[in-house]
Computed example of a mutant assay.
Amino acid sequence: MATKTLARGMGTFFKDCVHPESRWSKCPHEYKIRYRDAAGKQTEESGYATQDEAIDRLTEVYTAKKATRPNRARADRIKKYGGMRFEEYANEWKAGQRDLAASSLRHLDSLLNHHLFPALGSRRMNTFDHKVVDRFIQTMERNNVGLATQSNAFDKLKSILLDAHRLGLFGENPLEGVKPPQYDPERAVIPSPAQLREIRTAGDDTFLLFADLMSGCGMRNGEAAAVNIKNIVADNVYRISEQVNQTTGSYGRLKHRKIGEYRDVPLPAQIKDTIEWYAHKHGTVDGYLLRHPQDPAKAFPYYYLGNRWQRIKKANTTDIPTGMVMYGFRHFFASNCLTHGIPITDVAEWMGHNSLDITFKIYRHLMPGSISKAAKILDMGLAA
Rank of each mutant, 00 (worst) to 15 (best):
D379H: 07
P174Y: 00
W277I: 05
E88Y: 11
H280M: 06
N71T: 12
L338S: 03
G218W: 08
G40P: 14
L254D: 08
A67G: 14
E92C: 03
N316A: 14
D357W: 07
G328R: 12
T201W: 02
I33Q: 06
D379C: 03
F300C: 08
A374I: 05
Y302M: 05
G11Y: 12
I312H: 00
D357C: 01
R8N: 15
I371K: 14
A148N: 08
H280V: 00
N173P: 04
P20T: 04
S22N: 02
E349T: 09
E186Q: 07
V347E: 02
S103C: 04
P28G: 11
R311A: 15
M324Q: 05
G168A: 12
V18Y: 11
Y288Q: 08
S103E: 11
R220C: 04
S122D: 14
A90K: 10
K179E: 12
L289D: 03
G341D: 08
R74I: 09
G47H: 01
K32M: 09
E60T: 04
L120S: 10
V189L: 09
R364Q: 14
S151V: 05
E87L: 01
G11R: 13
A202Q: 07
D52G: 06
I371F: 11
N231H: 15
A49R: 07
N152G: 05
G96V: 06
E44I: 07
M324R: 08
A54W: 10
D319I: 01
F154I: 08
T3N: 14
G369H: 10
R124D: 06
T317V: 02
E276D: 06
H280P: 00
G260L: 02
P181T: 02
D184P: 00
N144E: 14
Q195Y: 01
S335F: 05
V189R: 09
L338T: 05
R124C: 11
K15M: 04
D52P: 02
T3F: 14
A67L: 15
G252P: 12
A7E: 15
P268W: 11
M326R: 01
P181K: 02
A119N: 06
S103K: 05
A54D: 05
M326D: 00
F360A: 01
F14W: 13
K80R: 12
P301V: 08
Q138L: 13
G96A: 12
P343I: 13
